[in-house]
Amino acid sequence: MNKDSLMKKIISAPYYLWAAMFIIVPLILVVYYAFTDVNGNFTLDYIKTLGSYRYIFLRSIWYGFLATVISLVIAYPLAYIMAKSSASVQRMMVMIVMLPMWMNFLIRTYSWMTILEDTGIINSMLSALGLPQVHIINTAGAVILGMVYNYLPYMILPLYTVMSKMNNSLIEAAEDLGASKMTVLSKVILPLSLPGVASGFTMVFVPSVSTFYISKKLGGGTFAMIGDVIEMQFQTSYNYNLGATLSLVLMILIILSMAIMNRFTDDDDGGVLI
C-alpha cells in the first residue's frame, strides 16, 4: 500500500514539476506584475486604467463568441455526417479536417490576406467574370472568418469523438417509440453530444478571444483586439505591468464566460470543461 503510493508519487513528480514551472509560476508572475509598478511597489493604478479598454474587451469577447457560434453551426452537421459514415470514409474525413493543421498557423493566416485583398484572388476572379468587386479585407468579417477557419478543427474533432461513441440503439429506441427525426435530434442526439459541444466551445472560444495575429493581418490593425493591445504592451510599449493586468482580466473574463457556458450542460457532465 505504502510502496504503491510512493511509486505513484515518483511517477507523477515530473508532471507536478512541469505544472509548477510552466503553469503556477507564470500565473504568479502575471498576478505579481499586475499589482506592482515599474519599481516593484504595490499599486492599483493599472487596474484603474482598465476602464479605457472596456470597449476593446467587449469587442474581443463578442468576436470570439460569434466565431465560436459560427464554427459550431458549421461543425455540428459535418461531425454528425462523419460519425455516421463508414470506417474508411471516417478516417479519410478526419485526415482532411486535420490537414490544414499540419501547416503553420501564421502562413495560413497570411494566405488569407492574399485571397481576400482588393487585388487578391477572390476579387481577380470576380472581375474576370465581370462581377462587381467585394471589399472583405480589413473588415470585422475578415477577422471572424480567419478565426473560424483557423479554429474550426478544434470544434469538429471533439464533436466527432462524442458522436462516434454515441450508442445507436438509443436513437433506434426513440424512433421505435414514435419520435420524429426532429424529436430524435433535439431529445436524444443533442443532449448526448453536449459534452462535445462544451469542449469544442472552449477550444475555439479561448484562442479566438485572445488572438492577436489574425486581427492584425486580416483586420489591417484597425480592429484592435485585446490580444493586440497586450502584445503591444510587451513588444513596443515595454509596459509589462499593464500587459499583465490586461492578461489577468482577460483570464478572469474567459473563466466567467465559460461559467455561463457551463450552465448549458448538465451538472453531472460539466467536468469536461476547462
Binding site: Y53, Y55, I56, L58, A224
Partner: peptide
C-alpha cells in the same frame, strides 16, 4: 501609448455592440 490605444479603438459604433 494611451493615446495610441484611443486611436486604435476609435471610430467604432459601440451602441450596436451593446
Amino acid at each position: 501609448n494611451e493615446l495610441w490605444n484611443t486611436v486604435k479603438a476609435s471610430g467604432e459604433n459601440s451602441v450596436s455592440l451593446y
